[in-house]
Lab assay of single mutants.
Amino acid sequence: MGFKLLSKLLVYLTASIMAIASPLAFSVDSSGEYPTVSEIPVGEVRLYQIADGVWSHIATQSFDGAVYPSNGLIVRDGDELLLIDTAWGAKNTAALLAEIEKQIGLPVTRAVSTHFHDDRVGGVDVLRAAGVATYASPSTRRLAEVEGNEIPTHSLEGLSSSGDAVRFGPVELFYPGAAHSTDNLIVYVPSASVLYGGCAIYELSRTSAGNVADADLAEWPTSIERIQQHYPEAQFVIPGHGLPGGLDLLKHTTNVVKAHTNRSVVE
């Protein structure tokens, strides 16, 4: 069995187990497998329904001669939608809004960016022009300005110390501490036991640490421990890039980060 097929099978099995364990909360999309990078042309966006009122959005972007996937989250909030992270750029984010209108038909009224990198804030200006209120932590807003990236308009308070959590509509926002970046936030959907790890969490097929220019490698494993301790009931975990899975993604990420750190020390 090929690795790609095995990865998709694991996603399907995880979703099936969740649907059985929580039949009222989960209505997993039966329309197909989780979209992969090879299936999404740059400039297009796919939506994948995880649970009743919960979707991931998947886009792709060219970077350094390669094409990478990027995940975000959409959560229903009454007759409105909360968006977590842009679709990595203005063109993708405009396509995301169009796809949401086509498939869901509810307005996106608020959006949260989970850290300051372009795959999370690139497209904020498109959201703002569409009347979406954009939010991020003060740290993310400051770092985005320093980096020359787009800056969300509103500040999220109460997320300055490791372990801080605040309720934001249908989700809980959690600051686990520094990891992929010093400002990275985690998003949890309690009604569906869905954990969105953003770039602080890796997919299972990833074996290298990737972009760690703004990471705190020493603190990252401790931050992941905080996530595990705060959300032990999480059933569906979405990484910032690639295929979702279960809580095993947290341990896998820790292993990859520690291996990278150990290699760096040896070198």
Results as ranks from 00 to 15, higher is better:
M1R: 05
M1P: 03
G2I: 06
K4V: 10
L6H: 09
L6Y: 09
L9R: 08
L9D: 07
Y12T: 12
I17G: 05
P23Q: 06
L24V: 07
A25W: 09
G32W: 09
Y34D: 10
T36E: 11
S38Q: 12
E39S: 07
E39A: 10
I40Q: 11
P41S: 10
R46P: 03
I50P: 04
A59V: 11
T60E: 08
S62M: 12
D64G: 09
G65N: 07
V67F: 09
Y68D: 14
P69V: 12
S70D: 02
N71K: 02
N71G: 04
G72A: 00
L73T: 02
R76E: 10
R76I: 10
D79V: 13
E80W: 11
L81E: 02
L81F: 01
I84V: 14
D85A: 00
D85Y: 00
G89I: 01
G89F: 02
K91Q: 13
A95D: 09
A95F: 11
E99C: 05
V108A: 11
T109P: 10
T109F: 10
V112R: 03
V112N: 03
T114K: 02
T114Q: 00
H115K: 00
F116Q: 03
V121S: 04
G123Y: 03
G123I: 02
G123V: 03
V126S: 13
L127S: 00
A129P: 02
A129C: 04
A130R: 14
A136K: 03
S139A: 12
R141P: 04
R142V: 11
A144L: 13
G148W: 05
N149W: 09
N149E: 10
E150M: 13
E150S: 10
E150D: 12
T153S: 09
T153E: 12
H154L: 08
H154C: 05
G158I: 07
S160H: 14
S161E: 15
S161F: 15
S162G: 13
S162W: 13
F168N: 00
P170M: 11
V171W: 03
L173W: 00
P176I: 02
A179V: 04
T182M: 08
D183I: 01
L185H: 00
V187D: 02
V187N: 02
V189F: 06
S191Y: 11
S193Q: 09
V194W: 01
L195D: 00
L195P: 03
G198R: 03
E203L: 01
E203A: 10
S205N: 07
R206A: 08
T207I: 13
T207E: 13
T207G: 11
N211K: 10
N211E: 13
D214H: 15
A218Q: 15
A218S: 10
T222Y: 10
I224L: 13
Q228C: 05
P232F: 05
E233K: 14
E233M: 08
Q235M: 06
V237M: 03
V237H: 00
P239L: 01
P239G: 04
G240T: 01
G246E: 11
G246W: 03
K251H: 15
K251D: 06
K251F: 05
H252C: 01
T254M: 13
V256D: 03
V256M: 11
V257K: 02
V257F: 08
H260W: 06
S264H: 05
S264P: 11
S264G: 08
